[in-house]
Structures are given as structure tokens and as C-alpha cells.
């Protein structure tokens, strides 16, 4: 039972997007700060640090969760996935990312990483997710730019494509 002292840094190890990572953190360091400023993965954003906006959402052991409400030391040994781990290759986008681009599901892109992490989990857990399911999953995210309508379109289209029902059609 390791007791980690307040004023010292401690080794934290976990799996990030499929690769082992390690870094040092005081017990109080938030996972957001650890990902962004210790590991340099700045794709996970910070918008409120009290759990409401959803910008910091990452997958912890497969479940979307607020990185701002998680201490780095809490995820010792866990599997973390962030937006940096979504694309199949550096020059290719995932189906979900592709639909966001096609439907203008983002403007400033600040809320987007969190939203993608929530939707990615929903669509892989429930390929048949309904519009209502998607809304409920997205209710934990604030977007100030899009008014959500383009995000809903992108999500529904991604769901369709992931089920193999037709291609992305941009709203040209």
C-alpha cells in the first residue's frame, strides 16, 4: 500500500494510446496537467476543471471520464486513450474524425477532443446507438461554437458509416 507524500514527486506509469508511458507527479497533480505538461500530449484540453465542460474527457480503461477530475496517481497501471490515439495513421482520420470534418462538427476545435473520446466509446460499445443515445452521451459536453446541430449530424453519420450503411455525405 504505497502512501505517496504530498510534497514529493512520484513515478506514475500507465498505458497511453497503447504505449507504456511514465512520468513524475505530486499526488495532487491532475491527469490533465500530467498528460499535457508532463507527457506533452496537449490534445486533451482544459475548459473548466470542475467536470462540467467535458473538454478534458479521455477514456480511462475504456470509459470516457473527466481527466480534470482525476489525479494522475489514480490511473497508475490503467489504460488511457486520448484524442491523439484516434487516427489509424498520422495522415489518415478515423471514420468519426472524418465525419466531423465532412459535417463541420467543429469550429475552434477546443471542445472537440473530449467530444470525440465520448462518441468513440459510445459508437464502439453500441454500434446501434440511437439519436437519443448520442444526445445523452453528448450532454456532458459544452460546445460554444457549433450550436451542436453539426455535431449531431457528424455523429449520426459516423454511426451509420461504422455500421456499414453508406458513405459520408458533406452538407454541401
Amino acid at each position: 500500500m504505497p502512501r505517496l507524500g504530498a510534497d514529493r514527486r512520484h513515478e506514475v506509469r500507465f498505458t497511453l494510446n497503447g504505449r507504456p508511458v511514465e512520468g513524475e507527479a505530486e499526488p495532487r497533480m491532475l491527469l490533465t496537467d500530467f498528460l499535457r505538461h508532463v507527457l506533452g500530449r496537449t490534445g486533451t484540453h482544459v475548459g473548466c476543471e470542475h467536470g462540467v465542460c467535458g473538454a478534458c474527457t479521455v477514456q480511462i480503461d475504456g470509459a470516457p471520464a473527466r481527466a480534470c477530475l482525476t489525479l494522475a496517481v489514480q490511473v497508475e497501471g490503467a489504460e488511457i486513450r486520448t484524442v491523439e490515439g484516434l487516427a489509424p495513421a498520422p495522415d489518415r482520420l478515423s471514420v468519426l474524425q472524418e465525419s466531423f470534418r465532412a459535417h463541420h462538427g467543429l469550429q475552434c476545435g477546443f471542445c472537440t477532443p473530449g467530444i470525440l473520446m465520448s462518441l468513440d466509446e459510445l459508437l464502439s460499445r453500441r454500434p446501434d446507438a440511437s439519436e437519443d443515445d448520442i444526445r445523452h452521451q453528448l450532454s456532458g459536453h459544452l460546445c460554444r461554437c457549433t450550436g451542436y446541430a453539426p455535431i449531431m449530424k457528424a455523429a449520426l453519420d459516423a454511426a451509420r458509416r461504422l455500421r456499414g450503411e453508406g458513405e459520408t455525405a458533406a452538407d454541401a
Partner: peptide, 22 residues
């Protein structure tokens, strides 16, 4: 006049945006 895909998006969708705190 066309809704071409945005050049901004690829970076923003993959966590490679460059916001001030990044």
C-alpha cells in the same frame, strides 16, 4: 461558394492544435 473541407480540421481532430497553453 462551396463547402470545401476545412484545412484547419485535420490538426484539430487529432490533438495537434496549437492553442496558447499547448
Amino acid at each position: 461558394g462551396q463547402s470545401v473541407p476545412r484545412v484547419e480540421d485535420a490538426a484539430l481532430l487529432t490533438g495537434r492544435g496549437r492553442f496558447i497553453d499547448d
